[in-house]
């Protein structure tokens, strides 16, 4: 699992790649919490994520809750394959805003 981030105008874009599972979820959570600390508009790009389990979802939820409780907004983009399916089954696709492309996500973040 790898995390990269960059600022596009006022929006922080976090790109994740690899697997979000029981071995990587904590690392994902702590890295993201550090990155989003002083940010209010965040896009998480999951294009390169090939696998997510409930442990990964817990990390995502924790980051989402933190951002919202700080008054910020967090959206996701570019989900594919089983990641998209897991988001849908778990209801994450309805509690978070999900966009097909990064451009759409940036406009809405």
């Amino acid at each position: 699992m790898e995390i990269n981030s960059k600022k596009v105008d006022q929006v922080l874009v976090i790109s994740v790649s690899g697997r979000l599972d029981t071995t990587t979820a904590q690392d994902f959570e702590s890295s993201c919490l550090e990155l989003v600390k002083d940010e209010s508009r965040i896009v998480v790009d999951l294009q390169e994520v090939e696998y997510v389990s409930s442990a990964g979802l817990r990390g995502i939820l924790s980051v989402g809750k933190t951002v919202r409780s700080n008054g910020g907004g967090l959206v996701f983009c570019c989900l594919r394959g089983m990641v998209k399916e897991v988001f849908e089954i778990s209801g994450f696709a309805s509690i978070f805003s999900i966009y097909d492309t990064r451009e759409q996500a940036l406009e809405s973040a």
Partner: peptide, 16 residues
């Protein structure tokens, strides 16, 4: 789990 609850009220248990 209640998959329709908003982020702030979502619990993490039972998802697996």
């Amino acid at each position: 789990p209640d998959t329709g609850r908003p982020v702030q009220h979502r619990e993490v248990g039972g998802l697996g």
